[in-house]
Design a protein around this nucleic acid. Structure first.
Length: 277
DNA sequence: CTGTAATCCTGCGAGC
DNA sequence: TGCTCGCAGGATTACA
């Protein structure tokens, strides 16, 4: 579910509530998550202070600090998968189904990881460096900081279609199905176009479209299609501004042509057959 | 290298 | 009302 704008919203919501907090205890359900929680981490996490909260692509990173300062401190890494929710709540708030990890915090609140489909996960790393190196090797640049030449080169040397390229986290980290479709529409490019068929100008148009769409989506706290909620439990608003995603058969906001839907890179891909070439 | 399909799960809407 | 089917914001793997 959550793509960059949704994950960014969760991080922004949670940051003020979590910075400086101490984890008193951790509970977890027996259900298996994508990146399995392991009981032995419990003892390691207890007593850690939360020093920062960050996002990289669709990953949430919770930086921690132990009792003694370390150059390579521990961290907790979270992925929301399709239906993940990461929220702070008071213990009085009823616990919904599918809450799989609960961090008890020192000021009484709970940090909850909920995920009905369990495609997401929570993993503890004793040393930040273990994750950073691996993640940087597997993730491309952030969509709001795409190097111009890098992006042109990535597109123009690929025989894949735009949809597949945009969804590839190694090319760009954080774009998913909604924003790939929205960016192609904004750039007036058919998602089935092959990367190598793009002119440098079209590459730049796509890059700018991605940046604009992602920026606006963050400003609207992401899109809530079904399950998504931010770190404080609020729904997103960008679903109201989507131009093509989920609008199959509805009129294009520019030319009134019915929006088409076609399977590309294994995913439903929405586009205007008239505006996008 | 590319593309496709299956896989991990639960829940929901459409259609009968 | 109740059933089955297909599909869902992700990501990895196997196979053609």
């Amino acid at each position: 579910m959550p793509e960059l704008p949704e994950v960014e919203t969760v991080v922004r919501d949670l940051r003020p509530a979590l910075l400086g907090r101490t984890v008193l205890d951790v509970q977890y359900s027996r259900k298996k998550l994508r990146h399995p929680w392991q009981p032995r981490w419990n003892a390691q996490i207890r007593g850690l202070h939360i020093t920062d909260l960050r996002r990289r692509g669709k990953w949430i990173l919770v930086d921690c600090a132990g009792p003694t300062p370390s150059a390579d401190p521990p961290l907790v890494r979270v992925h929301l998968g399709m239906t993940g929710q990461f929220t702070v709540a008071t213990p009085h708030t009823p616990r919904p189904d599918h809450v799989h990890v609960i961090f008890q915090l020192d000021h009484g609140d709970e940090l909850r990881f909920r995920d009905p489909r369990r495609f997401g996960g929570v993993t503890f790393f004793a040393h930040r460096s273990e994750v950073e190196a691996a993640m940087n090797a597997e993730l491309g640049p952030e969509p709001l900081e795409i190097p111009v030449e890098y992006f042109r080169h990535s597109l123009r040397t690929s025989r894949r279609n735009l949809k597949a390229i945009l969804l590839d986290q190694k090319t760009l980290a954080g774009v998913g199905n909604i924003y790939a479709d929205e960016a192609c529409f904004r750039a007036r490019l058919h998602p089935g176009r092959r990367g190598h068929s793009l002119t440098p100008q079209e590459c730049d148009r796509l890059r700018q479209a991605i940046e604009t769409v992602i920026r606006r989506a963050i400003a609207s706290r992401g899109s809530t299609i079904r399950d998504y909620i931010g770190g404080s439990g609020l729904r997103g608003q960008f679903q109201n501004e989507l131009a093509v995603y989920g609008r199959t058969g509805e009129p294009c906001r520019v030319c009134q042509t019915p929006i088409a839907c076609q399977r590309l890179a294994g995913r439903s891909s929405h586009f205007c057959p008239n505006c996008q070439r």
